[in-house]
Design a protein around this nucleic acid. Structure first.
Length: 154
DNA sequence: GCCAACGTTGGC
DNA sequence: GCCAACGTTGGC
């Protein structure tokens, strides 16, 4: 089983929104970055656990844990001209983007802030993709070691 | 294939 | 709101 981190702006969709969603799950649509897509399409497997990260907010950080409940399949929002993430070069016959379904697992007891994570950037969390300079990836892998260490901070 | 222009992300 | 980082686009 692998571990991951996905980012979301809480003003748009927070961990609480996921918890309130029907069946406590949602499809993770709108990813329009090839590296992120490849992680979703090729890496994410049913049962994998995912850190739910809040970005672009007062206290950016890891807010909760979700689980992959459906593996990669075409992101239909790319086909919809009305959708914010419409991409005319992606068609049902030849879909370019994909999504997975994630389900609420739990909130962390407290948000583990980016600021706190950064204090370990040169030690326990060296090589953690989230802390690499200028990282803008919205989907990234988390190593076993890093996953366990971060959970211990909780 | 190069690279300037442009758009987006996301911390601060 | 600013701006650095960086991915994408498109002219050449």
């Amino acid at each position: 089983m692998s571990h991951w981190l996905i980012k979301s702006e809480p003003d748009v969709f927070s961990i609480d929104d996921l918890k309130k969603s029907p069946g406590r799950k949602t499809h993770w649509d709108g990813v329009r970055n090839y590296q992120a897509r490849n992680f979703m399409r090729d890496g994410m497997k049913k049962g994998d656990l995912v850190f739910f990260y809040h970005s672009n907010c007062d206290t950016p950080g890891i807010a909760g844990i979700a689980k992959i409940v459906k593996e990669g399949y075409p992101d239909h929002t790319a086909f919809d001209p009305e959708d914010k993430h419409y991409d005319p070069s992606s068609t049902p016959g030849n879909p370019r983007w994909c999504m997975v379904d994630v389900k609420f697992e739990r909130k962390l007891k407290r948000v583990i802030s980016l600021a706190e994570l950064k204090t370990f950037a040169d030690s326990k969390l060296r090589e953690f993709a989230l802390l690499r300079r200028g990282n803008r990836l919205s989907v990234m892998p988390v190593s076993e070691t890093h996953w366990r260490f971060i959970l211990k901070l909780e």
